[in-house]
Write a protein that binds this DNA or RNA. Structure first.
Length: 463
RNA sequence: GGCCCUAUCGUCUAACGGCUAGGACAGCGGGUUUUCAAUCCGCUAAUCGGGGUUCGAUUCCCCGUAGGGCUACCA
């Protein structure tokens, strides 16, 4: 039997981490079993569904590499649903409930719930006719791959609605029809659907379809432990992308949220995840999404990136005046790779008070900041800077790199004290108390600019 | 309220019914170092409560408690 799984989002909000993990687990399971993975857009709610959200879902899945084998949109399939509804009515599994019957049902409901509520003055609107499922009122038992045996008494569900007044089928109906028509063998979805399962099984039975295997994965929670949702500020996956997270980090982190391999290995490639994944190692309880740990994963993957790939990811965040593939650009890459956690950190580093602001332009700084805090001595600082200037001046323009500059001055540095020499040099070159080391910084701005800035510093020290 | 699901460090988690309850993130402390970061080393920190079953419960059962989900002509 070919395994067929599906991801069935409603396009009523952006694709966020919770949706992503649900999709991921379904996709992994399909790939692991050499089966099929289907994307089905559940847009039966015309008011809330938006094309924009559907595009966001599709784009995000594409970015993450969760390729699907088939694509469906429920709004394109109304004919199929209507056919089933007719059949169900004909076979007595469903019936048309008239406005009069509906009025009575809502009155009964109001009476039942109004007993212990103070304001039972709620007015009952006239209703139109709907299609209701004829509930056989039986016990439903199913075996969940993650939770084991789950039992429900469906009596309390009553004859639930399966098609709205205008003849539009409702969620529970279309889900079942589609899962059946598409041959879904394994329904891997959020825990919030556990309570929906019995009525869906009832419909499967009514249309004479086999019951798929269910696996209800735990929910992703916000910091307050409520369900992670669009409305509660869940961050769209597309947002993580634009903040400069790597998809590998996101995949790795989300896979480990609710699932764990049999050893303690945490850095896992998609291939490794697919080969070691199993539903019985999926957690039963909800998990809070922790961006700090995501950042740690991102850092791990940045470290592994090849220079060219790193440069490609860094480009969108670099200021315009840095020309791609230029000398400065190439010198910058290793510096950035050492420092950033997410790629958008790069923008901050080039901002007015960022660590790399000095590359474009040096900000004014005080005379005192040129002095090393452990040994503040203006005469010595002056002397060191003058000596260093002399040594650097002898280097050729075209071989002014971090290595050559360091080589040129290192003996002097060693002989005169690292902090005493290097601190004033750092300040002279960058004007900042936080910066890369003076040699890397020198290479970034070039020989002429270095000499000019040292002169400025010497001027400050004299006054 | 009813029905259902869940419960191990702050967070994510590991532990055939049997070592001192292990790992990771964060936090804290230290090494390295010319600053910041990175990096390395170390430390703090948990089995929700009460009953059972058992020679022995994180683990199995029951009762509480807490959290979450569902309870629509939303999905």
């Amino acid at each position: 039997m070919t395994v067929i799984t599906r991801f069935a989002p409603s396009p009523t909000g952006y694709f966020h981490a919770g949706s992503y993990r649900t999709a991921l687990f379904s996709w992994i399971y399909a790939r692991q079993n050499k089966g099929k993975f289907i994307l089905r857009i559940e847009d039966t709610d015309k008011e809330r569904s938006k094309k924009e959200y559907e595009e966001n879902i599709v784009d995000s899945l594409k970015w993450l590499g969760l390729e699907y084998d088939e694509f469906y949109r429920q709004s394109d399939r109304t004919d199929i649903y209507m056919r089933y509804i007719k059949q169900m009515v004909a076979s007595g599994h469903a019936y048309i409930s008239t406005p009069e019957q509906e009025l009575k049902i809502s009155q009964d409901l109001a009476r039942a719930s109004g007993k212990n509520s103070k304001n039972s003055t709620e007015t009952i609107q006239p209703r139109s006719s709907v299609i209701r499922f004829k509930n056989p009122n039986k016990k439903i038992v199913f075996n969940d791959s993650i939770r084991g045996r789950i039992e429900f008494d469906t009596t309390e569900l009553g004859d639930f609605v399966i098609a709205k007044s205008e003849g539009e089928p409702v969620f529970h109906l279309v889900v079942v029809i589609d899962d059946h028509e598409m041959g879904i063998t394994h329904i891997i979805r959020g825990e919030d659907h556990i309570s929906n399962t019995p009525r869906q099984i009832l419909i499967f039975e009514a249309i004479g379809a086999p019951i798929p295997q269910y696996a209800h994965i735990p929910l992703l929670l916000s910091a307050d432990r409520s369900k992670l949702s669009k409305r509660r500020g869940a961050v769209p996956v597309s947002e993580y992308r634009s903040r400069g997270y790597l998809k590998e980090a996101l995949i790795n982190y989300l896979a480990l949220l609710g699932w764990h391999p049999s050893d303690d290995k945490e850095i896992l490639s998609v291939e490794e995840i697919i080969s070691s994944f199993s539903l019985d190692r999926v957690q039963k309880s909800g998990a809070i999404f922790d961006e700090e740990k995501l950042k740690w994963f991102n850092r791990q993957y940045i470290t592994k990136l090849a220079d060219a790939d790193f440069a490609e990811h860094a480009r969108p965040f670099l200021p315009e005046w840095i020309v791609p593939k230029s000398d400065t650009f190439n010198k910058l890459i290793p510096v950035l790779r050492d420092k950033i956690v997410i790629f958008s950190d790069i923008s901050a580093m080039f901002s007015a008070n960022g660590e790399l602001a000095f590359v474009k332009q040096i900000n004014d700084y005080s005379k005192d900041s040129l002095l090393w805090k452990k040994n503040p001595n203006a005469d010595q600082a002056s002397k060191h800077l003058a000596e260093i200037r002399g040594l650097l001046k002898m280097l050729a323009n075209d071989s002014f790199t971090a290595e050559t500059t360091k080589q040129a001055v290192w003996p002097y540095v060693e002989a005169n004290g690292k902090g005493d020499v290097l601190w004033p040099l750092r300040m002279a070159i960058t004007g900042q108390d936080k910066s890369p080391d003076p040699f890397v910084s020198s290479a970034l701005i070039g020989k002429d600019e270095v000499l000019r800035r040292i002169d400025t510093a010497l001027g400050k020290l004299k006054s």
